[in-house]
Nucleic acid binder design. Sequence first.
DNA 1: AATGATACATAAAACAATTAGGTATAAGCG
DNA 2: CGCTTATACCTAATTGTTTTATGTATCATT
Lengths: 118, 118
Amino acid sequence: MYSQELLKGTLQTIVLSLLAENQRMYGYEITQHVKDKTAGEIQLTEGALYPTLHKLEAEGFLTTEKVSIGKRVRKYYSLTEVGNKQANDKVNEFRRFSETMNDLLNSFNPNPELQWLS
Amino acid sequence: MYSQELLKGTLQTIVLSLLAENQRMYGYEITQHVKDKTAGEIQLTEGALYPTLHKLEAEGFLTTEKVSIGKRVRKYYSLTEVGNKQANDKVNEFRRFSETMNDLLNSFNPNPELQWLS
DNA sequence: AATGATACATAAAACAATTAGGTATAAGCG
DNA sequence: CGCTTATACCTAATTGTTTTATGTATCATT
């Protein structure tokens, strides 16, 4: 697990990119997906996730549909057209950002695993 | 300029890594250094920087010395031994984090610039 | 019957960063 | 000389996100 502070500001990006990949997901599924794909290194808390989903919906990036599973109601989220564009923008921005940061940090103690590049 | 939200949680890492690289820097110098090295893409605000420097000092990661430049007083910050270790830890953590994030985001719309890798 | 997993949600508190302000010296320019 | 920009420090109020804590309820397993 990373110190959670690094995660700040990346939650929307994560959610949008997963939805771009999977078309339709529900909240709990998103948390599990992230946990699995990152070997538990990133764990979304529900207290952060649900408000974010609601916000993205209110902003027009997501739409919802409720599906009954037995007596439970699952709430599926999908990207709108604008949301799809937003997903692209956010993912690209993160990539650019992480490159910039890594350049900045590489001046000091270059990553041993990248030594062979130079 | 990136949307500032991505910067959240990285400020300490940036400050610590620059000090590991330069031995001795003052606040204003740090802001300029970051701005120059990132072509203006990352700009630290003073309202965020100074409290962070004070906090890192209070936590024992930094020491200060005041130097008079004419009538002005510059406050130089240096890493303590613990601070040096912390710099390493923080930088490594960021690197691991950005790798994890990029893996997570790469499932969707893999970065065209990395296509040749696969 | 109890526990853990699934599945949604909100509200109070904590925390970091932005915004906006304050002080002061030094340098450059018309 | 006066104005503006750059240098250089700082803090306080507000904003915004996340954590922590809590609540509800179904379903599966032991």
